[in-house]
Simulated assay, not measured.
Amino acid sequence: MTTAHASEESASWLLEIDNLTCGYGDTTVVSDIHLALSEGDIGCLLGPSGCGKSTILRAVAGFLPLQNGQIRLGGKPISVPGRAVPPEKRRIGMVFQDYALFPHLTVAQNVAFGLRHLDREERRLKVTQLLELVHLHDLAEQHPHALSGGQQQRVALARALAPEPTLILLDEPFSNLDADLRRRLSLDVRDILKTLGISAILVTHDQQEAFAMCDQVAVVRDGRVQQWDVPYNLYHEPANRFVAGFVGQGGFVKGTALGPDSIASELGIIRGNRAYPWPKDTLVDVLIRPDDIVFDPESTLRPKVIEKTFAGTSTLYRFRLSAETEFEALFRSHLDFRLGEPVPVRVEADHLIAFERT
């Protein structure tokens, strides 16, 4: 597992998860989890369904006891085996997948629900400020059923922010929205959290959402964190083959090591930015991303187009070079090739990502 910013002092972390193991009853779901989130950062738990993302989030919220390890918030333990600070005393806000709004309360009353300790005027001012922040001030007297999904999500966020939590947990908060609204709302939520300086952890299976919204991302598989890093490193410097295949688009091409930084393949000799310790002639698999392939009229490498997906400003092509070598390329849309057409291309893999073949 790779941990970004590992050299920073422990005191700089807002949230620390150390050797976390937990599950349901006698069943262990996640184990050996190590994460640390800086104050003001937005982190993400990213992975396929059933990998343990929501279990980690529930443990941070205080809904699950720990079998092993420790969770600290602001340097203070909030969960250890056999002892935990109750969820309502953790100063952690939660935004659920289904929003969990109170249908009989107005928007303003939903947001004010956690502000009973304030007097009436303080509560009114706080609610007004939050509704203006999430651009819902003109819907204060509406009930949730009258709102769109995106508006309900904003109400849920405002309600979670109202008690001024130290940390916000977002459990698949945009999954019920259409793709375009998901993109826009995720960026809006990021802006709101950054404006307030509030840290958050997002759970999602959508890597575009994770990369657009979050400062650091944990890729989770089978109850273990494979890599905890900034999005750029997850894409260009994956810690293992699973992360390489899960993050971004791309596929593996067979190759043979010529030296520490060069590999022979059907696509030619591929060179990159890193040195591997393999002996010469080691059989490897090289990850080829769509942005590693460039159109080159002078190239003698001419694979045939077998699929194409038009996306407006660009077109994603799938090429076949031989029975066992296929790869994708993303070209500007004015480069319009027909199915079956041979296209001159070359590999320009600035970041060499390869793994020994097993």
Rank of each mutant, 00 (worst) to 15 (best):
G40P: 05
A36P: 05
I42N: 01
H34L: 03
L118P: 10
A84S: 15
D18F: 08
K89D: 15
I33H: 00
L118F: 04
C44R: 15
I33M: 01
H34Q: 10
Q109E: 15
E39S: 13
P103T: 14
E121P: 00
R90L: 13
S49R: 03
R90D: 12
P48H: 11
T28S: 00
K76F: 07
H104I: 07
D41L: 06
D119C: 01
G50I: 13
P77S: 10
A100V: 03
G43Q: 08
N68R: 11
F113L: 12
G25Y: 05
H117E: 10
V60N: 03
R90I: 12
V30W: 03
D41G: 05
S38G: 13
L45A: 06
F102E: 04
Q109A: 15
L73C: 04
C44Q: 14
D41V: 05
A100T: 04
F96A: 09
A112T: 11
V107H: 10
V30Y: 02
V29H: 03
P87C: 06
G43Y: 05
H104N: 14
C44W: 15
G25T: 11
L46H: 12
G50C: 06
G69Q: 01
G40Y: 08
R120M: 04
D26R: 15
C44D: 13
G74R: 01
G47K: 06
